[in-house]
Simulated assay, not measured.
Amino acid sequence: MHPQPPRRTAHTYRDLLAYDRWGRTGRPVLLLHGLGYDRTMWWPMAAELGDDITAVAVDLPGHGQSPARGRCDVDELAEDLAMLIHGLGLRRAPVLIAHAEAAHVAGRFAAGYSTHRVITVGCDGPGRLDGVPSPYRQFAVRRSLPDAYADWPAGDLPRSNHPDAEDFPHLRDPAGFAALLNTLR
């Protein structure tokens, strides 16, 4: 339950997307938070990843440190993520881990770009925190939703396909979730 010291570096891509990066080699893993959250929700789990993964946790526009946009289109976000992956020189098809509503972006990305795997976790709306250890609950606080997302796709999200699906599996057991990702080579 005590993550390794972070090997995280923080960046901004073309003044569009703020992101954190762990590692320099290995399978790229793109970590997408749900609406109302930010990239910090991935910190406990990403700190547990080994050196065989390059993890990139992105703040969606209007979240965390990414600037807001007038409108956030799912297709545009998928394209922005593809440009980010290309700009970072990540030459292998990424694994996308999408929390809650970010499953829409991950699905569009996978439909248009080479993708190793998409894993969806979480819920639609504020998640249940029972089972999330108290030190990690701070990473699961939902904030206000920017207006730019008002016209996002409505309806059911893809069901979680993590074997131990809960609202925040990456916070309930960061080391276990990291171990799962380390098997996706």
Score class of each variant (00 low, 15 high):
A140Q: 04
D51F: 02
F109I: 15
G26T: 00
A103S: 15
G87P: 01
G176D: 13
F168S: 11
L81D: 10
H11D: 05
R92C: 03
P6R: 11
P158G: 12
D38G: 12
G131D: 05
G127Q: 11
L84C: 11
H170E: 10
N182K: 03
A150H: 04
D20L: 10
V118P: 01
L96F: 04
G176R: 09
M83I: 00
H170F: 15
I97A: 07
G122A: 12
R7W: 05
R185S: 13
Y37R: 07
V105Y: 02
P133H: 09
W152Y: 04
R8Y: 07
L84D: 06
R92L: 10
P126Y: 03
D124F: 06
A103F: 12
T183Q: 08
L81Y: 02
R185G: 15
V141G: 09
A154K: 15
R137H: 14
A106R: 02
D59Y: 01
N161S: 04
G155W: 04
P5L: 05
A106F: 04
A100R: 07
I85N: 06
D38Q: 13
L181T: 00
A55I: 04
S160P: 03
D38Y: 11
V56G: 03
P169L: 07
W152L: 02
I85P: 03
R172S: 09
R92M: 07
V141E: 14
R69W: 14
G23M: 08
D124I: 01
A47N: 13
P5I: 03
A10W: 09
T115Q: 03
S114I: 00
N161V: 02
D147P: 04
S134F: 10
P44N: 09
L90S: 03
V132K: 11
P28W: 05
H86M: 02
E79M: 05
D167L: 11
R71H: 07
G62K: 05
A106V: 10
I85K: 09
V58R: 08
H162K: 01
R24I: 02
D73T: 06
A178H: 08
L81R: 00
W152A: 10
P135E: 10
G122L: 12
Q138C: 07
A78H: 08
P133M: 09
D38I: 07
L157R: 09
V74Y: 02
R143L: 11
P6K: 04
D52V: 01
V95D: 10
T40R: 15
E76H: 08
G107S: 15
G36S: 11
L171H: 05
L129K: 09
P44L: 15
C123Q: 06
I85D: 00
M41V: 08
Q65L: 06
H170A: 08
C123D: 11
A46H: 07
F177T: 13
T120A: 14
L81T: 03
L157V: 12
A175W: 00
V118W: 12
T25Y: 02
L32K: 06
F139K: 03
L157A: 13
S160L: 06
H11F: 04
H11T: 12
R128S: 03
L17Y: 09
